[in-house]
């Protein structure tokens, strides 16, 4: 059994997975792609639906970009990647409209904004465009999960302290006076800042920690 574990731990897929979830976690390491998602982190239901949509788009677009990587002229690859991503986002939007109309309405424009989420473009450009489909799929799912973990970590204190509920279930009793500020925009900034602070204090400092100040992509 330990041999088996060792084998898994050494395999390339596992390395790619681990890198995506933790070592290169898009939010902590790179502070990317929080734009369009921070807004919906005030309710667990919204966050979970959004995360599922994001993982789906990230995985599918990574595989598609990877399959087409030898046929895409380099000069137009960015626009090709954007169109691939947009197509999958439309799929998500239609599915949400059909099966979860309430959540879809609550998320509003933010579902469409998955297209401009820097993480998806970043993975397509940085990983999928130079790797075969299978590692690209693993990378997409891993980055998506790493991303979702952070979103959920931000959402739990926001919904719990802001409304005393989680998934709309009342958890805190009458004695709890809701902190309205947590469900409003400033709460999201403070919660994310604290999460980044905690993560950076406990993580070993990677070599490339210094921000270059360059453009995000």
């Amino acid at each position: 059994m330990p041999d088996m574990m060792k084998k898994i731990a050494l395999s390339r897929s596992w390395q790619v997975f681990k890198t995506g979830v933790w070592n290169e976690n898009p939010i902590f390491r790179q502070i990317l792609g929080i734009c369009s998602t921070l807004a919906i982190t005030n309710l667990m239901v919204n966050t979970v639906v959004m995360s599922a949509g994001l993982i789906f788009v990230l995985a599918c677009s990574n595989v598609t970009v990877s399959l087409l990587r030898n046929y895409t002229p380099r000069r137009i690859r960015m626009i090709v990647q954007t169109l691939i991503i947009a197509a999958y986002v439309i799929v998500v939007k239609i599915l949400l409209d059909a099966y979860l109309p309430d959540v879809s309405e609550a998320l509003g424009a933010y579902v469409g904004l998955i297209i401009t989420n820097c993480i998806i473009m970043g993975r397509a450009e940085g990983f999928a465009s130079s790797n075969p489909p299978w590692p690209s799929l693993v990378d997409g799912v891993a980055c998506g999960i790493g991303y979702s973990i952070i979103l959920i970590a931000i959402t739990i204190p926001r919904e719990l302290m802001g409304q005393g509920t989680l998934f709309h279930v009342q958890l805190l009793g009458e004695w709890w006076r809701p902190w309205t500020i947590m469900v409003m925009p400033p709460g999201a900034f403070f919660a994310l800042a604290l999460a980044v602070w905690i993560a950076r204090r406990h993580a070993e400092p990677p070599a490339a920690e210094q921000q270059t100040g360059g453009p995000p992509q």
Partner: peptide
């Protein structure tokens, strides 16, 4: 230390 860069920027934005 851990707040340098993005952390403190987010707090100011808040």
């Amino acid at each position: 230390k851990g707040l340098e860069g993005p952390g403190i920027t987010l707090i100011i934005a808040g």
